[in-house]
């Protein structure tokens, strides 16, 4: 997508690059898929056609209306938790050198752990309710936020810090006026990655033990070899993921209109 900026295209070219090509590619994919299913006369249990899968979303809308809110709630809970704690951790690391020395190496170690594997343990602790899903969702999305936000807070030029210091600024003012705003673009790029992880976390949490939620629905339709429902659920999960992504993207645009990514092309390049 970034390639589009190189030649500074007009709106028409931008539209071609960012809308038309993907639309054509996706339409082509769906058509090939549909034709394959129809021509080869595949069983729905093996591979339902895209039209069947999409129509299943609407045919079973009451099922999704029961299960989707549960998953959405878990995602929001885990994600909100990781934003609050992630930014707090980054702040503590940037604020205190000792904390940085303690936390940073531990984080390097912790972030390589495949957190999904904690789910069975959390089921023992919290039972089949939504708490373990929120925790897995949190664990999955926490590290990208910490890493990105801390990087952003540290990425302030030395001259910038010296400049604010020369104004007899307090440590808090230096943080609030320079490090914090500087970290926002980094935070948002971490947050966009994290929202997909939070979604995966909630789904996997439901795989391991749940009576509700889209992850439960996936496991259920899988064991019933109800591929139509399985595909419909995957579509719903994807839609939720995209919805969250756009929400964050929209908030980003709102919060950092000054950032390179959102600048209008004008004035001095």
């Amino acid at each position: 997508m970034r390639t589009a900026h190189r030649a500074r295209p007009g709106w028409g070219r931008l539209l071609t690059a960012e809308v038309v090509y993907p639309a054509v590619a996706i339409a082509l994919l769906l058509t090939v898929w549909q034709l394959t299913v129809v021509m080869l006369d595949l069983r729905t249990t093996f591979l339902p056609s895209p039209t069947a899968a999409f129509s299943k979303v609407f045919r079973s809308y009451d099922t999704f209306l029961t299960h989707a809110p549960v998953t959405i709630f878990e995602i929001v809970g885990g994600y909100a938790l990781s934003i609050v704690l992630g930014v707090a951790t980054a702040f503590v690391m940037v604020w205190s050198r000792v904390m940085e020395k303690i936390v940073s190496p531990i984080l390097v170690f912790l972030q390589t752990i495949p957190y999904i594997s904690v789910a069975p343990l959390l089921i023992i602790w919290f039972g089949f309710n939504i708490a373990p899903k929120i925790v897995v969702s949190f664990l999955m999305s926490y590290f990208p936020i910490v890493v990105a936000t801390a990087a952003g807070m540290n990425a302030v030029e030395n001259d910038m810090v010296d400049m604010v210091r020369s104004m007899s600024a307090s440590k808090w003012q230096i943080f609030w006026k320079s490090r914090f705003p500087n970290s926002l673009p980094y935070f948002f790029s971490g947050a966009k990655v994290a929202v997909a992880f939070a979604t995966s976390g909630a789904i996997v949490g439901e795989y391991v033990g749940a009576d509700y939620g889209l992850g439960y629905l996936i496991v259920l339709s899988n064991s019933d070899t109800n591929s139509e429902l399985l595909f419909a659920t995957i579509i719903v999960v994807s839609a939720i993921g995209i919805g969250f992504f756009w929400l964050i993207h929209w908030m980003e645009k709102l919060c950092i209109p000054w950032h390179v990514a959102f600048r209008e092309e004008e004035g001095h390049g």
Binding site: M1, P22, A25, I26, L29, T45, F46, A196, T199, S200, I203, V204, L214, G215, I218, V219, N222, T225, S227, L230, T233, I234, V237, S238, G241, I242, F245
Partner: peptide, 19 residues
């Protein structure tokens, strides 16, 4: 296509491969 595939949760698709 790659970017589109990113929007599909891979973890949600996992059960399909067992099928």
């Amino acid at each position: 296509l790659f970017l589109f595939s990113q929007t599909v949760s891979k973890i949600a698709v996992a059960p399909l491969f067992v099928v």
